[in-house]
Design a protein around this nucleic acid. Structure first.
Lengths: 199, 199, 199, 199
DNA sequence: AGTTAATCGAGACGGTACGTCTAGTCTTGGG
DNA sequence: CCCAAGACTAGACGTACCGTCTCGATTAACT
């Protein structure tokens, strides 16, 4: 009961080609920017036939995104928020790091391109959520839940709302370039959220 | 100190062509989606030479974006938030409307494409801010300022932070498809912000 | 020591495409004239991508010229002048046929366009000489040489000059439209050349 | 009984513009070659509106050709063949000069382009004949007629044929690049023609 | 001298074709 | 059967010119 007529057999996939493709994709994005990367350039740099890319990925966005994930997934392998007992301090730590990353010019270009791709392609969005966003939100909710259980948040605090109140403003400010993304701003957001949902 | 060598003379611009182009662009985006729209298709439908488009706009994104703005700018001509005296009610009204719009499937496709375009092209982002976003944030801040002056918000409430706390979470949820965008969610956000910054 | 960096591999060339292109080119020239033929029209009629034409030919002139040659080369496969022993009669036969062809209105348009192309493009001229003109002049010289050996021409007759004296005037009259191109004129030219170089 | 509806009034024509256009055309052809010259470039260099060119000339070929004629017509104002009494010497003088001109690389490029244009455009051909070729052939025929009257040519010599026998071979050799165009060749041709038609 | 009408420089316009680039498919030959 | 290589159809790109069409601003001739 094959789902597709011409589904390739993953067991015969060349690991060497796969790695070369992802490496080439990552390198090209860094060098010439996402917009100017093409499947042909990736294939040429990877020393790979175009068909080998088309066989395993549906689009340029998917390849580049895969390359990005491959580089970032292991980094956040043991993904978890610190739990020092001081919720505010812990949240400030996380949001300051987030702000710092968003503020990094090197991340900015790639991040925007990838975000644009993800927002526009439902398949990529699903994959992005499964592999990056949902885990991040989950550990954040875990930390908040622990705090709520410890009485540091109101008992009826909605954790889904809470994470969106935390990350949403940073994201909003970043994408629209509304103002500085620094530790002070992160602290302000944390203070506001704690003020709203604090016990 | 001319910024461009071959800047065309706007006084000789054909208003008829301009309108035809924007209309064609809007129609095509609605029918086949931003990704499949091409300059050539816009020109063909508008009955216009390609050069006439390239003469006045730098990219496909700019044309489509202009078409979008042309349609939305006059709509929000008398842009202002209601001021019934009840800040919470007024904010709920605005955020409910915002949530409703984002939740509209017809808006979703175009909105995402345009957002992707805006995030990726600094020139478009600037124009988007000047013509749509900044005015919206400004009137929101005005309403908040009035409330602060009336003692309904803490005297030290940061209005920039406030608007980002209001719109950021909605935007975040919309772009990532994190959950339902309805009146209830809008109300939750408003309640949280008032809880954080309320007098 | 490759002459070109990106020379395509002729062994992988599609014979089907090549034939379709030449057929389309010939048909278009006949129908709308060389000047109005475009690479795009050839590609469209041949059901072929433009790149496939650009990959194998450097210019429109080259394609059309190739189509012309492909049609005319095999026709004159067994190219040779008659040798009845009577040099004058043999030359009259050839020049009358040449005059007849040049006088054909159908040939006139294509012939002029192709001539203009060939005169202007050194590469095309070289190819024209190798594939059409030189063989024709060679067989003519052969016939004259046989006549000279038989004492029908002066022993010191310059055969290069002779062929130019034969074909030059016809060509000159044709291109400039100086007068009728008929059997009588052909005979006149032959008589003059024999008078000049005859034994 | 006007031949055209919107025939411009020649009496109001700006001589200054006309001169600037012809000068610009000639300069451009010399610099970048006929094929790359465009009406727009001519207009730009001449500091003239495109319409001014279109008003007075039907095509690029016509302008360039006019520029060429303007430069060459006065040169050959008192066009006439020398008449020293020695027909052979006089013809050798003319044909040697012709060969020399055709052999000049500077003339070659322009000459070929103009020839190609002339052969292809019946209007230009007519003008070329009226203003350059026919006068040249006429004076040549005049000289030959004088020689015939003096008994230096056969009484029944066809003068139209004669001029084509003289100029045709040179032209043929030049256009096809068949061999050297020098004084020796010119002499050979003259000798052949005199041999054929001489008294 | 004032009016009128055509030419002028300038350049935007609707188009066509250019030659290049990339997408995604198909074919060939090697492992 | 995967793979590297690359030719194939298709079609958009952004540019260059075409020939036509307004624009004012000179001109030139004719009231």
């Amino acid at each position: 009961m094959a789902r597709q007529q011409n589904a390739p057999d993953p067991s015969r996939r060349s690991e060497q080609s796969r790695t070369a493709i992802l490496t080439a994709a990552a390198g090209l994005v860094a060098e010439i920017g996402f917009g100017k990367v093409t499947i042909e350039k990736i294939a040429a740099r990877a020393g790979v036939g175009k068909q080998t890319i088309y066989r395993w990925w549906p689009s340029k966005g998917a390849v580049v995104f895969d390359a990005f994930l491959a580089a970032n997934e292991n980094a956040s392998g043991g993904l978890a928020l610190p739990d020092t007992g001081d919720l505010g301090a812990d949240l400030r730590t996380v949001l300051r790091l987030t702000a710092l990353e968003l503020d990094d010019p090197a991340f900015d270009r790639t991040g925007r391109a990838l975000t644009a791709e993800v927002l526009t392609d439902p398949d990529l969005l699903r994959e992005y959520r499964q592999r990056l966003l949902d885990p991040l939100l989950e550990v954040t909710r875990d930390r908040l839940r622990a705090a709520r259980d410890a009485g540091q948040l109101r008992a009826d605090a909605d954790l889904d709302l809470a994470v969106e109140l935390l990350y949403g403003p940073l994201y909003y400010r970043w994408l629209h370039g509304l103002g500085p993304l620094d530790a002070g701003y992160a602290d302000q957001v944390v203070a506001a959220v704690l003020g709203a949902l604090g016990g």
